[in-house]
């Protein structure tokens, strides 16, 4: 992961160390405190990789169980928050693959024709816009799964294209092209939103 974008520090606070230690001993009280400390941040991550709130909550629940189950493997090297975030993302991707196999999730390459229309116009729109967080999350959730994952991983979670390609099992060029398409798609959607609000 790129280090510049996430302002995470490798230094764990004393409180974090205490909580991790309690969780390693299997103390439910400490697990609850750790959950209370991070659940909002992690839920924000899960929301970006899911289609709706209910799915994000399922992912959050499953991922936190994994966190507590595997917390003894966290050695203290690297950011704890980053380690948890990685578990959230991996769980989201696993959930997506599972849903895909069961046919509940569709890979929406159907947006391709949509993107080819007025590409020039959309690329020129670099003006400042103001959207609230719910709208931004809504836009990400509306993205087709492939675009959503690549965009979130690259633009928001600081993964490199190589890491994205490895995680998603795709070619590095596919990752780049999907990122580009995701940006165009988002631009169009933002334009639509801003036009509607005028």
């Amino acid at each position: 992961m790129k280090t510049g974008q996430s302002n995470e520090t490798n230094m764990l606070s004393f409180e974090d160390l205490q909580l991790i230690d309690g969780c390693k001993r299997g103390k439910r009280q400490f697990q609850n405190l750790l959950y209370q400390r991070y659940f909002r941040k992690m839920f924000a991550v899960c929301l970006r990789y899911s289609n709706n709130q209910a799915e994000a909550e399922d992912i959050l629940q499953e991922a936190f169980v994994k966190v507590f189950k595997n917390i003894s493997s966290y050695t203290g090297n690297g950011s704890f928050e980053g380690w948890m975030k990685r578990i959230m993302i991996n769980t989201s991707l696993t959930q997506y693959q599972k849903n895909k196999r069961m046919g509940t999730s569709v890979d929406l390459e159907v947006v391709e024709p949509y993107l080819t229309e007025n590409d020039e116009k959309s690329e020129q729109s670099g003006r400042a816009v103001s959207l609230n967080t719910d709208q931004l999350i809504g836009l990400i959730q509306k993205l087709p799964a492939g675009y959503k994952h690549v965009f979130s991983m690259y633009a928001l979670d600081g993964f490199t294209h190589q890491e994205i390609a490895d995680s998603l099992g795709i070619n590095i060029n596919t990752s780049k092209s999907q990122l580009s398409k995701a940006r165009k798609y988002l631009q169009k959607e933002i334009e639509k939103l801003t036009e509607n609000t005028r």
């Binding site: 974008q5 959950y35 994000a56 507590f68 670099g126 931004l136 999350i137 928001l156």
Partner: peptide, 29 residues
């Protein structure tokens, strides 16, 4: 413009901390 898109989302979601249902912790437990 692509840089702007990334920045828009990075800045907009930087402090985003939504609250999930309390049932999530019960499920974790």
């Amino acid at each position: 413009s692509q840089d702007n898109i990334d920045q828009l989302f990075q800045q907009g979601l930087d402090d985003y901390s939504p609250t999930p249902s309390p049932k999530v912790w019960q499920g974790v437990s």
